[in-house]
Amino acid sequence: MRPGRLHADEPDTGTALVRRLVAARFPAWADLPVEPVATAGTSNAVYRLGTGMSVRLPRTAGAALDVDKEHTWLPRLAPLLPAAVPLPLGRGEAAEGYPWPWSVHSWLEGERPAVGHLARPELLAADLAAFTAALHRVGIAGGPPAYRSEPLASRDARTRAALAHLADAIDTRAATAAWEAALRAPDHRGPAVWIHADLQPGNLLVTGDRLAGVIDFGCLGLGDPAVDLIAAWYVLPAAARSVFRAGLDADDAAWARGRGWALSVALLELEYYRETHPVMAAAARRVIGEVLADDAGGCAAAR
């Protein structure tokens, strides 16, 4: 792994490259300023273009596959959702030594939520529930499978491998017990619905404690609605989770699967990024701690 890279196959990027790409593909924007955006994201290098646009350069070949999906589906979904989402404004091709498609999106104003320091987290919980419920209700047919569309049980081997690799970092006995409890939850029996599948703090924008926008739809697609419940542990404190749960009318089985999804995703993130991405690793540790501290019975009673 080269220094400063998150992935083994990640190409070099930078403002000079972005200027060359934009000038060649979108000459009308060639004179706009370009600034790197500090982000905890791991799929795209993001640069602000002028004041109203962002340039997204996929960091991996897999992330590059999401460019077409976002250009196809975000314009159709955006009018149906109660919070702003970025709209694709242009698509670039491999050029200037950069190997994959890339895109220009509209810029959304807002700040990342200060997890653990929200003055009124119940407001964000209610807004998140409204956004997520609206997305789950979308009736547009023909969508692709979400990045996390598999049944929770199919992640068992990968999750246990991560647990084995993290024996020196977390309470793996407690984490294993929590994971096995989630696996006992019944599977989703309804139709797959539209899910964001990555409702983490880095993909949310807030104004104060209210949801202003949702970004980074690379995981978007059809799947189990319980996947989007990861926001309960990734974003919200324990006291606000009942508001989020009530807004989505999540039953005990869905809540248990959501808790399992949050744990599995965080374990795999901590295993992968513990040496290369301190911000992501710290967030994953916090989520694991939130899941293990969560009293599942108490949450069910508070529903």
Results as ranks from 00 to 15, higher is better:
L268D: 12
G92R: 11
E109Y: 11
D31N: 08
Q200F: 14
A125D: 02
G62H: 07
G142M: 14
T176H: 12
D294W: 15
D168W: 01
S54Q: 10
G62C: 08
V138G: 03
F244V: 12
G50S: 03
R274L: 02
A266I: 00
W102S: 07
A141E: 14
E122A: 15
E96Y: 03
E269G: 01
R184I: 01
A133R: 13
L163N: 08
W179H: 11
G92Q: 14
S54P: 04
A185F: 09
H277A: 08
T172P: 02
E10C: 05
V34L: 02
A284E: 15
G142D: 12
L87Q: 12
R48G: 09
R25Q: 11
G258W: 15
L166E: 05
G92N: 14
R20N: 11
P36R: 13
A266D: 03
A302Q: 08
P82L: 12
V22M: 00
P88K: 00
A129G: 08
P145L: 10
T132G: 07
R2D: 15
A185I: 02
T176N: 05
L57V: 02
W100V: 00
L89R: 01
R2A: 14
E10T: 05
A64H: 09
L267S: 04
P201V: 07
S154G: 04
A232G: 05
Q200M: 14
L32P: 01
H277T: 10
D68Q: 01
T172E: 01
G221T: 02
R303E: 13
D249W: 04
A256W: 13
F131I: 14
A293M: 10
W179D: 07
D68R: 10
A94N: 06
T132M: 03
D12V: 09
E290A: 15
A164F: 05
P88G: 04
A94K: 08
D252Y: 06
G52W: 09
L292P: 04
